[in-house]
Design a binder for these strands. Structure first.
Lengths: 235, 235
DNA sequence: GCAAAAGTGTTGGGCCTACACCCATGC
DNA sequence: GCATGGGTGTAGGCCCAACACTTTTGC
């Protein structure tokens, strides 16, 4: 099909994407990937990685590209979060930001590269975030809320852990995300009864003292099958 | 503050909002408000109400304005749904649509006005929708999914009913949304134990045969208090 | 051998499910 | 008086929460 007419609106709004990228490790807890802004406004401030959408790319492609350009990290999970569009959120001109929620796995949770696009990129513990540019703190709050509620009925939590992990890591993760102690025996009983974890014949490498734990692996194939059959969990 | 610089991106993308507006009544079930397009593309097709965002208004203001202009109905509940932005979703040029999920209360669920902006506006039963313009069927599917999952842990369901309603209306609503029979006694026990419904000393007006039921009213104040104290329900 | 973390079962109570008969009203 | 829909209670099973001691490892 070929269309002659054009859209008649004159509109002076730009579209950007921003990503709230979570990482986790057992000793430091939940952390977030930020970049330092090279240019005004908010030059030198920390901000979410992101940028303008190119005319020919999808929104997901835009986030993926920006993340690669600005931080170099490998993204493991990505979903759309919310669109922030109040007229005054950017002092230059109106910019609507489609925000995304992303997770980087622990093993890939290494030093981000400082690239040409951002003067710096670094992980921050979510409890010790610096002041953020624009309305990015609001976006971060929305993302944390999403993460906290989502882990209760969806296995996104496993995206935060290494592919193989000792059971206690999972327990610590949930205990920290849900912000309450988790009973070890009850939690293990419940998770194992879901049948979505494979128990491996390997033990965790030692870190400090204590008995090393057996390793487990999330079985996505099995999980997807269960979901197809109407399965639903709730923690 | 006064800024001299401008945004450097040249971007040829427009921003629109679209609304999936739900209505409900006990006899016809769940319905959806559509407009008939006056202009190409998809002239004459049914589509979601919506339109371009003006430079100075927020996204919510844009949806509210468009709904008023195109349908004249009074919106009772509004939340952002999802942002659809694939490059080819509009044949004219790239348009990113921030979609909204809206509810019109049964009592206000009257004939929409045909206004100057749309050649026609009408309610359709969700099970008998016409072919929709653009990717609007995808948006509708997303909205229905959201509604179905949301009623299970959030009192949006009450927004679909009249402010005063007989208990059986609530039961029918849930049974239709959850797409399974609901045990009358168990359902009532559960809902009443939440303490978020006021039992009124009024009986429902007669419609046809049968004993008239007592009327109930959702107590939002009480609900908000409970939520503040960490309350959460699950059906 | 001691410090640190992993592994492991049982019991009581509460909640959820299943289930059927009588009541109020209109015609 | 009959048809239609409203209103009501109980019993069994399942799931969830509470709870503590033993084992393995490093040092």
């Amino acid at each position: 099909m070929f269309y002659l007419y054009r859209v008649k609106t004159t509109q002076n709004i730009k579209i950007a994407v921003d990503a709230v990228v979570f990482g986790y490790d057992t000793s430091n807890g939940l952390s977030l990937l930020l970049i330092r802004r090279k240019f005004d406004p908010y030059q030198g401030s920390w901000a979410l990685p992101g940028g303008f959408v190119l005319d020919a790319e999808s929104l997901e492609e835009a986030v993926t590209r920006e993340l690669k350009e600005e931080t170099g990290v490998h993204i493991n999970y990505l979903e759309q979060l919310y669109t922030f569009g109040s007229p005054k959120r950017d002092p230059r001109q109106r910019i609507v930001s489609v925000s995304y929620f992303a997770i980087v796995r622990e093993s890939a949770h290494q030093e981000p590269e400082a690239t040409t696009d951002a003067s710096d990129a670094a992980w921050f513990n979510v409890t010790e975030l610096p002041n953020l540019a624009f309305d990015h703190q609001t976006i971060v709050n929305t993302a944390i809320e999403r993460l906290r509620s989502k882990v209760r009925y969806n296995p996104v939590g496993f995206e935060l852990l290494d592919t193989k992990f000792p059971f206690s890591d999972l327990e610590k993760l949930y205990s920290s995300l849900l912000d309450r102690p988790v009973d070890r025996r009850n939690f293990k009983k419940k998770i194992m009864s879901l049948g979505i974890l494979d128990e491996l014949n390997e033990k965790a490498p030692h870190k400090g003292a204590g008995r090393p734990g057996r390793l487990y692996r999330f079985n996505r194939k099995r999980y997807d099958e269960l979901v197809r059959d109407g399965f639903h969990f709730e923690l």
